[in-house]
Amino acid sequence: MIEANGLVKDYRTIRALDSVSLKVGRGEIFGFFGPNGAGKTTCIRVLCGLTQASGGDAKVLDIDVCKNPVWVRDNIAVLSEETRFYEEMTPRRYLNMFGKFMLVKKSERLARINSIADLADLRGFIDQKIASLSQGQRQRVSLARVLMADAPLLFLDEPFEGIDIIHRKKLREHFRDYVSRGNTIFFTSHNLIEAEHIVDRFAFIHQGKLIACGTAQELKDKYLAPSYLLHVSDPQKAKEALDRGLRLQNIKVIEGQVMLTLQKRADAASISKILVQENVDLFEMRTTGTMEEVFERTARGDVC
């Protein structure tokens, strides 16, 4: 769906993108993360054909985005953080206008607006002027515009901004259903914790450079120490047994659960064996460490 090779974007003396190469496949939610000013938005702009790269090349949906930016935009939908509105319009009219841009027939357009209004939680203000809406409501209107598009590729910049918990759940389900049909989402957010449960693959950008890319597991394996949280029948006994039987960096009991960090990831398979030998029941074993920690480490250049 997306293939970028050595993308460079310079703004006079500033290099916003520095040899960024990435591939995004069909049917995945691709997360693109980085701090403010790292180059996320610039990268999206280049991939959407809204600005031209200073170097490198990129294909989106097999279309050369440098040569045919409008053709690319014909087939994608973009949710940008800088979306502006025609303040006099109501969300309904705004969405109708974009439906026309997408050349959707009137009956279908109206049906789509109705269904998207539910999904993006617009019902309470769909016929009010946009000028009177809050920032969160505006964000939902923008999101609705994107969701209306019958496009195989979505670029979503902070799609959950201003969305309440109930609708977030619905949206996540919608996104999962959307990609399960072979579509793709290029996703950015500041909330890595939430993103971890949505995104299939992560890419981290820092100071214009792509510093890491992979699934959550791959990145955690690569960048985080092997830490686990164990829910067992006897935490104290388990702690003592594991301390004796494994090479550990540390182990402690927190809130009735055992938390440990191995010196070598390969030792993880021995945990259950030791607990069986000690007659301790293992109810659940989870890896710990978040993608935020991964990002911090990649940004610092740390590798396990």
Partner: peptide, 12 residues
Amino acid sequence: KGTIKVLFFGPI
């Protein structure tokens, strides 16, 4: 107002 940018995020 910069509203023209709204359109360019569509296929305009």
